[in-house]
């Protein structure tokens, strides 16, 4: 069924380069990968042709080489219920951007803001493009794999050295010992 949809998307949207991603394990979800530049046209096609009538979520996954934006559509048609994972890949980690689909699906408004907040992808033409869960002056994008929590926030020190008491320090040392023990143990299991 997804194969048909891939050919439909390719014939309807030129340059979409839709391809089917099938996992090795048949229990897992297949998904459709499209060109990031054509995402608006593909979403428009899905909506117009009534293949999918609602956007459920926009999830982003950071695979270090590229960031994948996963659009999760749902078909709430009683006769033909279903869901679709549509993916677009962004390789630019600094200025990564993709077109918004919030004019087609208003649900995308908040989901895209969350995706920007967590993974730092800019959505072009978004009506209200700012952070949603983190404060406006937060630095960095928490769900990226290379995220390091800031030492300072608004002049406040995170984990101040001087205020830490000796008992806590001792506990942290113990904790590192446990981590070493865990690593040794997990090495043994494998």
């Amino acid at each position: 069924m997804l194969n048909e949809l891939v050919s439909k998307i390719n014939s309807a949207v030129s340059g979409a380069n839709a391809s089917l991603l099938t996992p090795e394990d048949s229990k897992l979800e297949s998904s459709i990968l499209v060109d990031a530049k054509k995402i608006h046209a593909v979403a428009e096609f899905l909506k117009k042709s009534k293949i999918m009538n609602a956007l459920q979520a926009i999830s982003g996954v950071d695979y270090v080489e590229f960031i994948e934006v996963v659009y999760i559509f749902g078909n709430f048609d009683i006769a033909n219920p279903g869901q679709l994972l549509l993916k677009a890949r962004i390789t630019d980690r600094v200025n990564g951007n993709i077109d918004t689909i919030s004019d087609l699906f208003p649900a995308a408004d908040y989901q895209e803001r969350e995706c920007f907040d967590m993974l730092g992808i800019t959505f072009n033409n978004h009506p209200d493009h700012r952070r949603i869960l983190c404060p406006d002056d937060w630095e960095g994008f928490p769900l990226r794999k290379d995220y390091v929590a800031a030492k300072n926030y608004n002049g406040m020190e995170v984990f101040p050295e001087g205020k830490m008491n000796m008992a806590d320090r001792e506990f942290i040392v113990r904790q590192e010992m446990i981590k070493k023990a865990q690593e040794a143990q997990s090495g043994k299991v494998q």
Binding site: P23, E24, D25, K27, L28, E29, S31, Q56, A57, S59, V61, V70, I72, G74, Q83, L85
Partner: peptide, 21 residues
């Protein structure tokens, strides 16, 4: 195994979806 699932279920407040990679 390597891959992903999207699981949705009917919760009291609506459909909860878990996208697990």
């Amino acid at each position: 195994p390597k891959g992903e699932v999207y699981m949705r279920q009917e919760c009291p407040r609506g459909e909860l979806g878990i996208h697990l990679v």
